[in-house]
Simulated scan of single mutants.
Amino acid sequence: MKPFLHKWRDDRGAVSTQLVLVIPVLLLLALLIVQFAVVWHARHIAQYAAERALAAARIKDATAADGRAQARRSLAALGSRILTAPSVVVDRTAAHTTVRVAGAVIAVVPGLTLHASGTASGPTERITTPAGGRL
Rank of each mutant, 00 (worst) to 15 (best):
K2Q: 14
G133R: 10
R100P: 02
Q47L: 08
V38Q: 01
R9L: 15
A76M: 07
L75C: 01
S80M: 13
A55C: 08
V105P: 02
R72G: 08
A46K: 02
V109G: 05
V99I: 06
R73F: 00
L83W: 03
V88D: 00
Q18G: 14
D91H: 10
W8L: 15
E51C: 10
P130S: 11
R72C: 11
L31C: 10
E51R: 05
H6P: 11
L27S: 08
A56C: 03
R52E: 10
V88P: 03
L26T: 04
A104K: 07
G103Q: 06
E125T: 09
L27F: 09
V105S: 03
P110Q: 13
T113V: 14
A95F: 11
R72Y: 08
Q35K: 06
A85Q: 12
K60P: 12
G122M: 05
L28Y: 06
G111S: 14
A95D: 13
P3Q: 10
G111P: 10
G122I: 01
W8M: 15
M1G: 12
L32Y: 08
L135N: 09
P130V: 11
V90Y: 01
A77L: 08
T97E: 03
T93L: 10
R134N: 09
V90H: 01
G118N: 00
W8A: 15
R72M: 11
H115C: 14
V88I: 03
H6N: 14
R12V: 15
F4W: 14
P123F: 11
R100T: 05
A120I: 02
S16A: 15
L32R: 07
V25W: 02
L54W: 02
T17P: 08
G132R: 07
S117N: 11
H96C: 12
L54G: 03
A71E: 01
V109M: 09
T128M: 11
D91F: 09
S117D: 11
D66N: 06
L31R: 01
L19W: 06
A62Y: 01
S80Q: 12
Q35D: 07
L78H: 02
A46L: 00
A62M: 01
K2G: 13
G13E: 10
G67I: 01
Q70K: 05
T113S: 13
R81V: 12
T113P: 06
L83I: 05
D66H: 02
I82T: 05
F36W: 05
I33N: 06
G79E: 02
I59Y: 02
A55S: 09
L26S: 07
P110G: 13
D11K: 13
D66Y: 00
S80R: 10
R68E: 09
S74L: 04
V90N: 01
K7Q: 15
A77S: 07
V20Q: 06
A64L: 02
S80A: 14
S16D: 11
G111D: 13
P86C: 08
L75N: 04
Q70E: 10
A95P: 04
V90M: 03
A71I: 00
I23W: 06
V108F: 09
E51H: 08
V22H: 07
A116Q: 04
A55Q: 05
L114H: 03
V25Q: 05
R52Y: 07
T84N: 06
A56S: 02
I23K: 04
R9K: 14
F36D: 00
I33D: 07
R12I: 15
A76E: 06
A69T: 03
T128L: 12
Q47V: 06
G13N: 06
R43I: 10
S117H: 08
G133Y: 07
G67Q: 00
